[in-house]
Amino acid sequence: MSQGELTVKILSPERILFRGTAKSLGLPGMLGYMTLLPGHAPMVAELDSGVMTLEADGMAAEKLFVTGGFVDVSGEGVTVLADVVEKTAEINIERAKKALGRAEERLTGHKVQGIDVPRALSAKKRAAHRIELAGTTKHLH
């Protein structure tokens, strides 16, 4: 990896989302958001669900939705191994809204007992990020 640029691969189990060079890559880590810049030290980190910001060479910064997985930073570049990656245009906002409603219902917990709280929380988080991301791009157009 040369000093000026970051070689980035964004992979999900089903496809290759991006392969190329970038100026920076922002990721939702388990311990908070981080931004990877060229020359980053080797690292492996677990990812949370959230928004990934990719500043590819010669392109405006693009925001992608990501849930879970890992990022592997090595001398050869950055490899994002995510469970799910969606471009903003691919987000199904209706589905996300429904998921959010479901999760909130579970968390307020009028009817169900013994629910999986962490699971509902992460579902809520995923849905909220999806809606937020899909919402921001709507404004731009």
Binding site: L31, P42, M43, V44, E46, S74, G75, D83
Partner: peptide, 27 residues
């Protein structure tokens, strides 16, 4: 040779290994 063994882990390696292995099985 050339691959550094000292790499940053986030969260710490001991905590990272389980989710990694779980994902490995899924993969």
């Amino acid at each position: 040779p050339g691959v550094p063994t000292h790499i940053l882990m986030e969260p710490v390696a001991a905590k990272l290994i389980e989710p990694v292995l779980e994902r490995l099985i899924v993969a």
